[in-house]
Amino acid sequence: MVKLKGLEETLDELYEIEGVEACILYRIDGVPITIRTPGYREHLLETMFWLEKQIKRVLGEMNREGLRETIFYFRNNRILIAPSSKSTVLVTIAEAEANQQLVSLETLRATKIIEECVA
């Protein structure tokens, strides 16, 4: 329970960063574990459908290339994908106007905390 609380709080903090539209923790098979999103937004829903289908493949490519993070640009969103443990992956969807360096750093920091929580 304490570990789960830590995980939820980490996502809450990440979601509070200005310009972060959503942050989602996925299992590596593409099943969402926990989500922070605003109310209904069509473009986010489309991105999430895409992520659910593609996460496994993207992770495979990242593993092959030895990447710690991958960034995709969809419309006005920057989507950062960062593996957070052997079985989880953290995705942050930020607006183009967001402080990208801060979002990246905080996402990577969050992945470390998540790893401690779920391992």
Binding site: L4, R27, I33, S85, K86, T88, V118, A119
Partner: peptide, 28 residues
């Protein structure tokens, strides 16, 4: 059970619960 030995490897999902509200998450 995914078999990595982590918290979200063993998970339970309630796919359907006719006539009743249920949690829709992924529960370790």
């Amino acid at each position: 059970n995914l078999g990595f030995g982590e918290m979200y490897d063993r998970t339970l999902r309630i796919m359907k619960n006719r006539g009743s509200k249920h949690g829709e998450g992924l529960y370790p």
